[in-house]
Simulated scan of single mutants.
Amino acid sequence: MCLGIPGEVVEVREDRSDLAKVDVSGVRRVINIGLLEGEEAVGPGDWILIHVGFALSKIDEREAQAALDFLKGIGQDYEDELDALRQSHIE
């Protein structure tokens, strides 16, 4: 099962505005935010929904917390998604 998981933007890269470092339950990775171009700007402190290294949408903190609570409740699928994120690498 593949999940969209919420992450908080830590920084947007200055040299590549389509990439941002995000924190997902303590795992920090660079992900692609290019699909969000044309939407509201994304910056540090914003929450986004991530799937396979790409930001799919910007969400508010309340939505992010509700999604994290749900994902933690489903157990292994969430852990599998975090493991996949830990192993990912985008530059």
Results as ranks from 00 to 15, higher is better:
50 I>Y: 04
25 S>D: 09
13 R>D: 09
16 R>K: 14
46 D>M: 03
11 E>M: 08
90 I>G: 01
9 V>Y: 06
59 I>N: 06
51 H>R: 15
41 A>D: 07
57 S>F: 01
16 R>A: 14
82 L>H: 04
91 E>Y: 05
15 D>M: 01
23 D>N: 07
74 I>Y: 08
60 D>E: 10
90 I>S: 06
6 P>L: 07
81 E>G: 02
58 K>N: 10
89 H>A: 10
36 L>P: 00
40 E>P: 00
90 I>A: 10
19 L>A: 11
5 I>V: 15
48 I>T: 10
40 E>M: 02
78 Y>L: 06
36 L>N: 00
48 I>R: 11
6 P>I: 07
75 G>C: 09
70 F>Q: 13
41 A>P: 10
70 F>P: 02
67 A>T: 13
87 Q>E: 13
1 M>L: 12
85 L>E: 05
20 A>F: 00
51 H>G: 12
19 L>G: 02
77 D>Q: 10
84 A>P: 01
30 V>L: 08
27 V>H: 00
37 E>G: 02
5 I>F: 14
52 V>T: 13
91 E>H: 05
16 R>S: 13
67 A>G: 04
19 L>I: 12
69 D>A: 15
85 L>Y: 08
30 V>F: 06
45 G>Y: 04
80 D>S: 11
77 D>E: 15
31 I>T: 01
5 I>T: 11
1 M>C: 12
26 G>W: 02
48 I>G: 07
82 L>P: 10
74 I>K: 09
31 I>Q: 03
54 F>W: 07
18 D>L: 04
56 L>R: 15
37 E>K: 12
83 D>G: 08
71 L>H: 07
84 A>Q: 01
84 A>F: 03
32 N>R: 09
31 I>Y: 01
42 V>Q: 05
65 Q>M: 11
1 M>T: 12
68 L>Y: 07
89 H>I: 04
25 S>Y: 01
30 V>R: 04
73 G>I: 11
74 I>A: 13
18 D>W: 05
64 A>Y: 12
25 S>H: 03
34 G>S: 08
7 G>K: 04
57 S>L: 10
91 E>Q: 14
52 V>E: 14
57 S>K: 14
28 R>P: 01
70 F>W: 11
67 A>D: 14
47 W>P: 11
31 I>C: 06
50 I>Q: 05
73 G>N: 13
49 L>V: 09
87 Q>N: 09
66 A>M: 15
24 V>K: 01
54 F>M: 11
34 G>L: 06
22 V>Q: 03
76 Q>F: 11
59 I>W: 08
71 L>F: 11
61 E>P: 08
12 V>T: 12
60 D>T: 06
84 A>L: 11
85 L>W: 00
55 A>F: 10
76 Q>R: 15
26 G>N: 02
19 L>M: 13
13 R>V: 09
14 E>A: 06
16 R>F: 04
1 M>G: 15
78 Y>P: 03
79 E>I: 12
31 I>W: 06
21 K>G: 00
91 E>G: 06
34 G>C: 03
53 G>L: 12
79 E>P: 03
29 R>E: 03
89 H>N: 06
61 E>F: 00
8 E>V: 13
40 E>K: 08
57 S>C: 05
30 V>G: 02
80 D>H: 09
84 A>T: 05
44 P>V: 01
87 Q>M: 10
75 G>M: 06
38 G>M: 00
10 V>E: 08
4 G>D: 10
